[in-house]
Design a protein around this nucleic acid. Structure first.
Lengths: 239, 239
DNA sequence: CGCCGGATTGATCCGGATCAAGTCATGTGG
DNA sequence: CCACATGACTTGATCCGGATCAATCCGGCG
């Protein structure tokens, strides 16, 4: 369980935000500086839409603080949460880099601040800058791998497996306390579960003494070993 | 999810194979020539493993003919078919480009011939060739979008929806005949269904007069319109 | 021929969705 | 300050889609 590294200090410089982000981890100082120079600040109040799918992509977003919900809207109104992006995560990267329309919608699940790199300037730079291309290519490859992972999770894990994996992968402080990002219903949806099921699974874990609830939205991990075990396998071994 | 792409013309030149492939569609002649020059031919008998996950990636594969099954193996032995790659499709691209270990296994579902671009030579070239990087970056972005699509399919469609979508997206000849690539059990698994369910869904479609079975593995689409309708929505409308 | 693996079909089971209350915690307006 | 509305969350009862188990069929192929 990752010990959380980044502090939630709100006012960071654009450069700090860009450095903190996974997709850009491969970049050297020069390339980061290039991106920083074209960055634009954006703020969103809770609940405001950031963009809707099928639109042209305004740019590549990096979350500074808050929480952004990226979700896909089906013709019949159903939605599936693709990501919940916290500080240091990017969204709309793919459309911005590939230069096509947005494949998903986004809104602010909590008040959020982002750094945006406008599509046109990014494209311009990519046309000129070999190193940037190369390093982003690697970042992108990791991104694909992440999706394969996600796909696998949803395809061959049951509810218990998905929840424990979420907990296991979530950052926690030194005392093993995890702050759940976002509303439970959004987390549940991201795991392709209903909030009811999510609730029940957490209760089962609590009954088995693996976790404890604190107030608000934080979870205390009691038996990290069992949690790992549960998250490791894909189908029920249960109780 | 265009599984099968075109005629099974077996003896194509390396250049033709590379040109036929989606990931490289963005490349201009120059870049294609570069890739062609480093290509290596590979053949696999049905059932032979091509590689296993966690190994170092030997290269980027493009299928010339036959069918390759790319699947992820869970610790407990379960497997999930990520792709069935027919002619013109690539696999192991991500690991070859990103330079990390293989995230999945592959074997030949049918006797298959591939063109392989060795990892080291590809990496070498990427380090030098700006245009190649740039064009691959775009190709990669499309690839991610494809996965998002796949994820959505599995997350919010029922069995009927997934099967009809598979049929709807599959290439057919002028008379509306679709040649199913690969064994039904593999197709079913790719859709995250059992072969039993797959079978039943096809029968229901036949009973409703939407499709007809021919011999062997081909399906005749009778009512393309209804097929489109069914594949368009995500959850059951029907009786 | 007999064997074997894929495909079909039927019977049954189960995980998780759905439906329906009920509980809090937070507004909001009188 | 209270009455009331709202929305996230919990909990229980029920339902259903698809998995699982099992029997059979079928088409190669030794």
């Amino acid at each position: 369980m990752n010990i959380q590294s980044r502090s939630q200090k709100s006012p960071r410089t654009d450069e700090e935000v860009i450095r903190s982000c996974g997709l850009f981890r491969g970049l050297d100082d020069t390339q980061r500086a290039v991106l920083t120079s074209m960055a634009v600040r954006k703020r969103f109040k809770q609940g405001t839409p950031i963009f809707v799918q099928e639109e042209a992509c305004p740019g590549l977003f990096v979350v500074d603080h808050g929480l952004v919900r990226v979700f896909r809207l089906a013709p019949n109104g159903q939605q599936h949460v693709l990501h919940l992006c916290g500080p240091g995560q990017t969204f709309a990267e793919v459309a911005a880099i590939g230069g096509f329309a947005l494949p998903a919608c986004a809104d602010a699940a909590q008040p959020a601040g982002c750094v945006m790199i406008p599509t046109d300037r990014l494209q311009q730079e990519l046309a000129l800058n070999h190193q940037l291309c190369r390093q982003l290519l690697t970042g992108m490859a990791f991104w694909v791998r992440h999706f394969v992972q996600l796909l696998e999770d949803i395809a061959l894990r049951d509810a218990m497996g998905r929840v424990t994996r979420l907990l296991y992968d979530s950052p926690c402080d030194a005392s093993g306390r995890i702050q759940l990002p976002g509303a439970k219903k959004d987390l549940a949806n991201h795991l392709n579960l209903t909030s009811e099921t999510f609730s029940r699974v957490l209760r089962r874990l609590a009954e088995q003494g693996v976790i404890e609830f604190d107030q608000d939205r934080s979870v205390h991990v009691i038996d990290a070993q069992q949690l790992e075990q549960l998250s490791g396998q894909s189908q029920n071994t249960d109780q």
